[in-house]
Design a protein around this nucleic acid. Sequence first.
DNA 1: GTTTATGCAAATTCTTTGCAATACT
DNA 2: AGTATTGCAAAGAATTTGCATAAAC
Lengths: 142, 142
Amino acid sequence: MSYSVEENFLISRSIKPTPNRVLVVRELLRATHPISLGDLEELLGYTMDKASIFRVLELLSEKEVTHVIEDGSRSLKYELCHSEGHHDASDQHPHFYCERCGTVYCLDDVTIPAIPLPAGYQVKSTNFMFKGICPKCSEGIS
Amino acid sequence: MSYSVEENFLISRSIKPTPNRVLVVRELLRATHPISLGDLEELLGYTMDKASIFRVLELLSEKEVTHVIEDGSRSLKYELCHSEGHHDASDQHPHFYCERCGTVYCLDDVTIPAIPLPAGYQVKSTNFMFKGICPKCSEGIS
DNA sequence: GTTTATGCAAATTCTTTGCAATACT
DNA sequence: AGTATTGCAAAGAATTTGCATAAAC
């Protein structure tokens, strides 16, 4: 008996793969953009209660498996970290929020140079957001 | 008859200085950190309705006189732009959100190097946030 | 049998709007 | 008079919690 991709994903991060967690992780793995709790409800066909989705996302964030993205819309968006298990420099790619279509793009290829802060600030995480119009909306395609 | 600092501030930005606007701007000018609508209510001794505060903040944001800061707390925070009238590079200083005391620091002295994005992204504004523990909380002073 | 996970309902919190009353020009 | 501003009340929207049931171990 073998595990599914989602189960492996969870087990490798020391999280018990319950049915709801598997479903949520499946959507997060599929997603090409950060998605909100409401997006997940919709993607799952409103078969899972939002409190349950909330608790899965809460757990994934606690375990540092997801990033939480604030993009200026009212709702938080989530995406899986690229690194395994912990936030690190490779996760600190910036995001781009399209003010027209609302999509959040992960600018994976954009590296943020090291930015020295004044003494005393202990940085745990970063959130770099660009806002404007995305390529698709610029072209009028989307 | 001369104008107050707050009135001058508003007039120079083509905003009519009503009593509420003057009071809100006074607090924003005094503030050393970005503050929320709730903070303003408290600072004003709950003499101004939150809907009124909201509309002043809305107007100031429309006129690009304030920045809106998302720091991971549930509430938006506001600060006056440093430049006059328009967002520009000098406003793009990063912020630091202290996860312990909730304070948002403006890292004015920290300059973000120019970060080239892939073709097609039209950047209108940026929001760079560091999160962690601030110097005061690190020392156990605050 | 105890712990963990889930769904339902509702509470919380923050933001935003409708509308009547007031103030300004 | 007519427009703009304000306060009060309530609506909206998203997040979070309490609790009872169901599942897992």
